[in-house]
Structure formats: structure tokens, C-alpha cells
Design a protein around this nucleic acid. Structure first.
Length: 201
DNA sequence: CACCAGGTTGACC
DNA sequence: GGTCAACATGGT
């Protein structure tokens, strides 16, 4: 598995992924980026910062319609606005949440509307800085290309079992997988795959 | 015009 | 326990 990481790193170089001023900004980004391009998310984040809404308390209280307009460019803007308000209320009321152990933190995040497995793990890894390997659609596609199939938990277990417990490694590896996937892995077919030809785990 | 993007939910079987 | 449409905008 580390072998795959080295190949990707060699091919693509280090990615400065999830740049954000605060952990809370990462949380907002995880929801906004669902099923949309990061460029759209950057615009929405900029809008929120302009209005002083990149903090839990103000965001939890902002007018729903106003919030919808600010994040419209990310798609699914009505449900995302509603979810962001609920999530920001939660973070406002639970400022110490990132101090909790990983499994407890993950379960609490999963209980929030709009936070599924990938989003929860992205928050754990990129906002809380704790070691949880994030599995996304590209990870599943690439694994399938390599003959590895399974549900979210199975793939996550394979990565976590095969890698040293290393937060920067987890961050970089997931970033590389997504960047690689965007370039070479379509929904239907892949192109110029550097991983499959002699890719062994 | 069709398809995809750094998913999640609730309904239905 | 799994599958699937709905959610919605913006870019190629």
C-alpha cells in the first residue's frame, strides 16, 4: 500500500490539501464540497468570510435564506444551508469536541444530519488532526481497478491496517488519490493508469 | 445535449 | 440488510 503512495507522490508531487484558516472552516468545507467542485466551495467560503460567518455562533444564527444565497454556487444549497446551521450550532455548544477519542468523535459527527462516513472522517483527519483514513468515490474506483472491492469500512480497514499510524501520511495519501482520480479515473473507465499495470499491494 | 463533481438521506424492498 | 431517486449548481 505504501508502494502505491510512493508512486502517486512521485507522479503528482505533494498536494497542499485542505488549506483553511481554522478547523471550523474545514468542517464547513466538508459539507459544502459534497458532490461539487472545490472551486465552487472556495467561492462560498469567501462569501461566508465576507459576512463574518466563518464561525460557529454567527453561522448558527444567520437567516436561512441569506445563507442559501451565499452557498448557492455549491449546489444542494437548501439542504446544505439547513445542515450547516445545525452543525454550527452543535460546534458552538460543544467547543471541546475535538478532544474526544477518535471513535467517540466519529460517532458524534455521524449523528449530525448531513455528515456521513466520508464527511465524518474528513473532519476527524483534516479538522481534528486525528488518524482516520478517508475513503471517497475515487478511492473505491481505484481499489476496484486493483481488484479490491468492499464497503466503506472494509476499504478503510485495508488502508489503516497497511499504513503506519501517521496523520500527515493519511492526509497526503487521500489527497493524492483524489487528485489522481480526477485526472485519470472516469466513472466508466480509466486512462493511463500507472497503478494497475504492475500495481501490487 | 449528456455527464460529472472531494455525498447524504430517507423511502422502499 | 442492500438499492435508489432526490437534492441543484456550474463546468466540459
Amino acid at each position: 500500500m505504501k508502494n502505491i503512495y510512493d508512486k502517486l507522490l512521485c507522479e503528482l508531487g505533494h498536494k497542499n490539501w485542505w488549506p483553511a484558516d481554522t478547523p471550523f472552516e474545514v468542517v464547513i468545507g466538508t459539507v459544502l464540497t459534497q458532490q461539487t467542485k472545490w472551486e465552487n466551495v472556495e467561492r462560498a467560503i469567501h462569501n461566508l468570510k465576507d459576512r463574518g460567518l466563518m464561525e460557529a455562533e454567527p453561522l448558527s444564527r444567520v437567516d436561512a435564506k441569506e445563507l442559501e444565497e451565499l452557498i448557492r454556487c455549491t449546489g444542494f444549497y437548501r439542504q446544505k444551508a439547513k445542515r450547516l446551521k445545525i452543525i454550527s450550532s452543535f460546534f458552538h455548544e460543544n467547543p471541546e469536541i475535538f478532544e474526544k477519542p477518535i471513535s467517540e468523535l466519529r460517532n458524534v459527527l455521524l449523528s449530525l444530519n448531513g455528515v456521513g462516513e466520508e464527511t465524518a472522517d474528513s473532519i476527524v483527519l483534516y479538522a481534528a488532526g486525528k488518524p482516520k483514513f478517508v475513503i471517497d468515490a475515487y478511492t473505491k474506483r481505484i481499489c476496484k481497478c486493483m481488484g479490491i472491492e468492499g464497503d466503506y469500512g472494509k476499504l478503510q480497514y485495508i488502508f489503516e491496517r497497511s499504513l503506519p499510524l501517521d496523520v500527515p501520511l493519511y492526509k497526503e495519501f487521500h489527497a493524492l488519490i483524489v487528485e489522481y482520480g480526477k485526472k485519470f479515473c472516469g466513472k466508466k473507465r480509466c486512462s493511463d493508469c500507472i497503478l494497475v499495470e504492475n500495481g501490487k499491494m
